[in-house]
Design a protein around this nucleic acid. Structure first.
Lengths: 218, 218
DNA sequence: TGTACATCAGTGAACGCGCGTTCACTGATGTAC
DNA sequence: TGTACATCAGTGAACGCGCGTTCACTGATGTAC
């Protein structure tokens, strides 16, 4: 990968920097200088910073969604039951990838996912919905079967809450790790944190839905 | 408030814009033009944008932490038990304030809290720890008594996860509301969402802690 | 009471900086005849 | 085989823009003598 082409070097570097600092906070100058390519190369190959972001998404999400589809096939074929642990566990293991100790990978995945939702302009979200909406819907269906007592809309929001917990935590990892170290004298790897996250999210997603109406509906 | 002084007009406007778009995304020109004051007035009265952010925090958090202290006094005096619902409920009601239908207020509170943690430079976090660390520690103590089975460090992380769920959701409210409307044909107010959040967070915080060691410890 | 000076809120214009983007250009490789 | 042209990856420098900040300045109010 040291001698990879310009396009791949840009994508490799951009992926890491975007995950570490976010899209807006990562300048093209930072990417190109770290990648050892000319500043103008990004606009030459991708057309714009926005298009580079989209390309990073595509290169990352395409293999992920294929793997997720395969895992769900496998799950259905072998009769593994739909429980919140199983469904979320699949996503987490895929997000951590084959290198569960690589602190970057899960952060990249969830941070990219999160940016897609919080992006004010819709085009990125629209792109993702078009290309990856089917897998996401399939995942949500399994989750719904795992917690049939939670109405779809409630589940929609709980998935958002979960995404928020994951993204916020992984985004602020550096700060949080130093607090964790100061208060408890203990380091915390990404793998540790995702293992702490799973029970928390499962507890939240399968929580009982209060049956009183939500708000002033007599 | 229409005829308030320059300093208050800046603070009022900055608070709203910071909550809507975040600190980095809100320019001094946006604040001063909306507030109807001169651009240079911010640096004249506060010294820098960073100091303005700190002033917004102070004006918001001082009454909040006083009210929280009072509520915890009240709770202890009247013998209301420490349950996750009660402890989180207090925070939520205070964050929503006296106007539970004001979509801004909760967003301001949680977004400000969140920025304090995710800020890469420590000075803002240090400032908050000095001025509001005591109330926060008291809150965490009550939460610990509400879920005695969860070790302190696990609880620390679960509070982070909760913060993340709240902040991420409220930050992306505009986007999420349009998705919610498109998929379920239903509007969602901030008050609705905080009501959905409470059971989710309670479920997550009181989830059982897996007793197997976390990672490769034999 | 009048005058000189100090203080202070507020202003308009400019400064330097980093940003994404653009543009004219180079040099290597492929293709047509 | 040689020559003219086309294509394309990559480059260095500049562009315009919005940003936070700075600076000289104004005008009103207070204070000293």
């Amino acid at each position: 990968m040291a001698q990879a082409g310009t396009v791949d070097r840009i994508l490799d570097t951009a992926e890491v920097l975007f995950a570490q600092k976010g899209f807006a906070e990562t300048s093209l100058r930072a990417i190109t200088s770290k990648a050892g390519v000319n500043l103008a190369a990004v606009n030459y190959h991708f057309g714009s910073k926005e298009a580079l972001i989209q390309a990073v998404f595509e290169r990352f999400l395409t293999p992920f969604s294929l793997a997720l589809d395969a895992k769900l096939d496998e799950m259905e074929a072998s009769g593994i039951p739909d429980t919140p642990e199983n469904v979320l566990g699949i996503v987490f293991r895929l997000a951590l990838g084959t290198h569960p100790d690589d602190p970057q990978r899960a952060a990249i995945f969830f941070r990219l996912s999160g940016q897609a939702y919080s992006q004010p302009q819709g085009h990125l979200r629209e792109y993702l919905h078009t290309h990856y909406g089917a897998v996401f819907a399939r995942l949500q269906l399994h989750l719904h079967q795992a917690v049939p007592g939670v109405p779809p809309m409630e589940l929609f929001w709980r998935v958002q809450f979960s995404l928020g917990a994951v993204i916020f935590t992984l985004s602020g990892m550096q700060s949080l790790q130093s607090i964790s170290k100061a208060d408890f004298n203990m380091d915390a790897s990404t793998a540790d944190i995702t293992k702490r996250l799973l029970p928390f999210l499962v507890g939240g997603i399968q929580a009982e839905v209060p049956d009183q109406p939500l708000h002033k509906d007599k």
